[in-house]
Computed example of a mutant assay.
Amino acid sequence: MREAKIAAWFFFVVGAGVSLASAWAAVTLASPSPTNSLLRNGLAQVLKTAIGEPAGHVAYHLFWAALGACVAYLAVRVLKDQSR
């Protein structure tokens, strides 16, 4: 079960990092970084066209912040399960 703890810590750190970085980008109203990923670029464009330039950028970053928080939460649940 040591491997499960290591994997859970890894996903906790990655999820928390993504969540914090995305939340900071939403607070500073940063535009999404240009990327070659169709998912990220498409999501940014759809949100920007649907709700406008600054609100679309904030929604984009909040989406990634929520996704990172979910990953961190699931990792904490695994760590709690492993401690029993």
Rank of each mutant, 00 (worst) to 15 (best):
V58I: 15
P54N: 14
M1Q: 13
A72Y: 00
F12A: 14
R40K: 06
G42F: 00
L79A: 08
L47Q: 08
G68T: 10
A65D: 10
R40W: 03
A21Q: 06
S37F: 03
A72P: 02
A21L: 01
F11C: 15
T49H: 02
R84V: 04
A65E: 07
L67H: 13
P32Q: 06
A25Q: 14
V58T: 12
N41H: 08
W24P: 01
P32E: 07
E3V: 01
R77C: 03
R40A: 01
A7H: 05
Q82H: 02
V71I: 15
T28G: 00
N41M: 02
H57C: 03
A59P: 01
A4P: 00
V18K: 10
Y60M: 09
S37C: 04
V14R: 08
S37E: 09
A8R: 13
P54L: 12
G15R: 03
A50K: 13
D81E: 15
A55F: 03
Q45E: 10
A75W: 01
T49V: 06
V71G: 15
A75Y: 02
D81F: 03
A26Q: 02
S22Q: 06
A25L: 11
A66P: 15
A25K: 13
L74W: 04
A75C: 08
L47D: 06
M1S: 14
H61P: 03
E53H: 05
L29S: 09
V13W: 12
R2G: 06
V76W: 00
V14T: 14
S22W: 03
A44W: 01
A72V: 01
K5M: 08
A16F: 00
S22R: 04
L79K: 05
R77I: 12
A4N: 08
A21E: 07
R2L: 05
T35Y: 02
V27M: 06
Q82D: 07
V78I: 13
F10I: 14
H61A: 02
M1K: 14
V76T: 07
W24C: 06
Q82V: 07
W9N: 12
A4E: 13
T35I: 05
W9Y: 03
A66W: 12
Y60H: 11
G15I: 09
L74V: 14
K5L: 01
P54D: 15
V13D: 10
W64P: 15
A66M: 11
D81M: 09
A50E: 11
A30V: 05
G42C: 04
S33H: 05
A26Y: 03
F63C: 12
S31R: 06
A50R: 14
S37R: 06
A44T: 06
V13I: 15
S83C: 05
A66E: 09
S22H: 03
A30D: 10
P32S: 09
H61Y: 02
C70D: 11
A23G: 12
R2C: 04
V14A: 08
G15P: 11
S83R: 15
L79F: 01
P54Y: 05
S19Y: 01
L20M: 09
